[in-house]
Amino acid sequence: MAGDLKSRLIEEARAAGFAKVGVCRPDAAPQTAGRLDAFVAAGRHGQMGWMAERMGWRGDPTALWPAARSVVMLAESYTPDVDPMEVVGQRDLGAISVYARGRDYHDIVKKRLKRVGRWLLEQCPGEEIKVFVDTAPVMEKPLAQAAGLGWQGKHTNLLGRDIGNWVFLGAIFTTIDLPVDAPEVDHCGSCRKCLDACPTDAFPAPFQLDARRCISYLTIEHKGPVPAEFRAALGNRIYGCDDCLAACPWNKFAVAAQEMRYHGTGALDAPPLAELAVLDDAAFRAMFSGSPVKRLGRDRFVRNVCYAIGNSGRPELAAVLVPLLADPDPVVADAALWARERLTRGVAADGAGA
């Protein structure tokens, strides 16, 4: 009976748009707590105080909802239809991480999780579910590995032999007792392409990340001025970074994204830095309506754009920095000053110098 329910659950999840489905117990990743403790104790979470908060729930999903008997982990592909690294070499354009070039995945994935969850409850009246998409103290990647979806690679992201690593993860916690899947094991072998691709050496060792050095963290989570030692390495990356993901050889098996809204209209594939630098708050909100980028806010985004302009090697872009030198946000003004001085010194666009 339970096995038949699970088979039909997988069919429903695939019909909803998920590329892969697996089931594990809430306590199936006991090593999570130790890894999280070490990560936070070393200060590698940076300013992400929310990672240190509710660590009991993050490290032990059974504490998050003690009534849960099973965790259904689902992966949805957002594999890009363009080379994500092509724009990185065009220094007068802004490089936005692939996942943020289309519609906000939180909304899309959550609706699909709720669809699958409603179906599950229809089959099992009286049972309960809770759905999570990257906004609750749930360690999705260890649970996804425990459910057999893939494994956490040396870049710490989830990847699978049949789905690659361009995936969004969602979780359905339920009181229903479902048959579990065998956990996946590491298949990285001796490969270190993802580690070598990182512009800021954010991996102290394989399978370990120091967020304080990660460009995704620096451009999204980090508040205030980005440390001077990392500004040149940002290049023209203004929201997130795809370097380690793009380098993974397992992507040759990546599942094509079925949801076209993840690809967007192309407007965010390579936006001109000169146009982004002049955005006020209203224009920023209008441009990024429905995009994950909107969560960043105008000030932090324009800060990133200023660093990218400073790394562009294009002196003609200095003109757009002039109004920003007196920006109400002192962090934006500081970034504009750094960029102007860098362009004035004629620093090469390859990122040399500080």
Rank of each mutant, 00 (worst) to 15 (best):
S70Q: 03
R54S: 11
S70A: 05
M73A: 13
D81A: 10
V40K: 14
D60H: 02
D37M: 00
G43R: 10
E76P: 01
Q47S: 04
E76W: 05
S77C: 15
L74K: 11
E76F: 00
R58H: 00
P30Y: 09
P80D: 13
M51C: 09
V72I: 10
D37N: 08
Q31P: 00
T79Q: 06
F39Y: 07
G34V: 09
A68G: 11
G56T: 13
M51F: 07
L74I: 00
H45I: 07
T79C: 11
Q31V: 12
W50D: 03
A75N: 01
A41M: 09
V71G: 00
Q31A: 12
L74H: 04
A33F: 12
R58Y: 06
D60M: 07
A38D: 12
T79S: 06
Q47N: 06
R54D: 01
H45S: 15
Q31F: 15
A42L: 13
S77Y: 10
G43Q: 06
M48C: 12
E76A: 06
R54M: 07
A42W: 07
P66D: 10
P66I: 14
F39P: 07
P80M: 08
G56L: 04
Q31R: 11
R35N: 11
P66W: 04
D37L: 02
G43C: 11
P80V: 07
M55I: 05
